[in-house]
Design a protein around this nucleic acid. Structure first.
Ligand SMILES: [Mn+2]
Ligand SMILES: [Mn+2]
Ligand SMILES: [Mn+2]
Ligand SMILES: [Mn+2]
Lengths: 227, 227
DNA sequence: TGTTCGCATTATCATAGACTAATGCTTGCA
DNA sequence: TGCAAGCATTAGTCTATGATAATGCGAACA
């Protein structure tokens, strides 16, 4: 059984965004690992060697690391725990979606498979967490759904918010207050490239202008394009 | 915030049974600490010095340790977490009372005050856990209730099982199968000192003979003495 | 083709928690 | 009154995980 530290590294490796245009099987450079885990570069290197010893990653000196098959399976297991716990904390205990990430970050290392499956049952086998992140099944990869960042949705399109990529409480509170939670519908009103902004109209809330960076963190399902 | 290891030591110190006839404020010898925590004597000594440094225990070399006021408050907090979690696992997730102790042993270190108070609310502020152990309030000591070990109950008495002291799954399964769970009522039929045994009649279950040691782990509330 | 700059690696050290083995108190008994 | 047996303490080591600082490699640019 891996330590909490090892579990955190594996999860971090899994969720690293591939560099633009890269396959997710490409090598992750050590600097990125160090930054993701907020440790020094030396610590990252030595930890990656340890994980490689344990067969959880493939490590190529001066090139980077990628998860091995075993490492990937473990990472998905931790991610499943994390996201089911988040959903549980919101649905059953009534916590706010802005505070469950940090709670789950600890609980994911303490919960047994048995308790986890009870939670899954109680929740009716959800397939996403409160932020719209997919919950991996107990075996195998989560299904892939094609989503469009709000920043790229066409003017006039009607979209449904499906997933919010930023876990920061401030951002989540902001999104909640403006009707940008998974399931809420909105219409894209305008792009303002010069202002680096986009304006949209959430259903049942005032219209809203967001910077491109923020809009890029809101992933949507296109319901209807501009007619 | 103490580490999980420190929390476990404090909890263990709190639940150490005082030697027969001792006040619970007496010093606990190092051998007892080492045995309770299943570590070597040297480890116990060095850990107690560390805890003394941190002001959580009073340590007298070659005599023993006792919890300080701060250590006691912390121990009660951990115990509250442990027992509320156990009750939650049984009541909400439907786990068996024989398996929740080990689960809670991990979760007690991972759960936040916020989540804990939500659980407490959801359960309706229970004051005992599934084994009948009292749940300490968020501040202060748990109320003391006078209970009688089944081994000492008089022949002919009607008693209600209030608390089961052994957390071993085997013992708990045995107790459950024979109707010896908190809340179940039974009548004491006979003492057989020569056989080191006691016979009782649980309501709605076959009568049962137990060794004195086992009967001593079943604490009861006397409902009615022999007429 | 050579050099430099950015990143990675190595070397050294620290801390928490554990172990084993050697040593040292203390107390009860002769 | 003295000593041995039973505990407890100390000394030295180990592993996991971190840090810092010195060194090294290699890709891109001159
Ligand atoms: Mn975590
Ligand atoms: Mn999430
Ligand atoms: Mn514990
Ligand atoms: Mn209990």
């Amino acid at each position: 059984m891996p330590t909490p530290t090892v579990e955190n590294y594996l999860k971090a490796l899994y969720v690293q965004p591939p560099a633009p245009g890269q396959q997710p099987t490409e090598l992750i450079p050590m600097g990125q690992v160090a930054e993701a885990m907020r440790v020094s570069p030396g610590t990252a290197t030595s930890m990656m060697k340890t994980l490689a010893e344990a067969g959880l990653v493939e490590y190529e000196p001066r090139a980077g690391v990628r998860l091995s098959e075993r490492g990937l399976a473990l990472a998905l297991q931790i991610l499943r725990r994390h996201r089911l716990i988040e959903q549980f904390l919101v649905q059953v205990l009534g916590l706010d979606w802005s505070e469950v990430h940090d709670e789950a970050e600890e609980l994911e290392h303490a919960i047994s498979d048995k308790v986890l499956e009870r939670i899954d049952l109680l929740l009716g086998h959800p397939d996403t967490d409160p932020h719209g992140d997919p919950i991996p099944p107990s075996h195998g990869q989560p299904a892939h759904v094609e989503l469009t960042p709000l920043s790229l949705a066409e003017v006039g399109a009607q979209v449904t918010v499906a997933r919010v990529l930023d876990q920061q409480p401030d951002f989540l509170n902001f999104a909640h207050q403006h009707g940008l939670t998974p399931g809420s519908r909105l219409t894209v009103l305008a792009h303002q490239p010069a202002a680096d902004a986009i304006t949209c109209q959430p259903e049942g809330a005032p219209s809203l202008t967001l910077g491109t960076a923020a809009a890029g963190k809101i992933l949507t399902l296109i319901e209807q394009t501009a007619s």
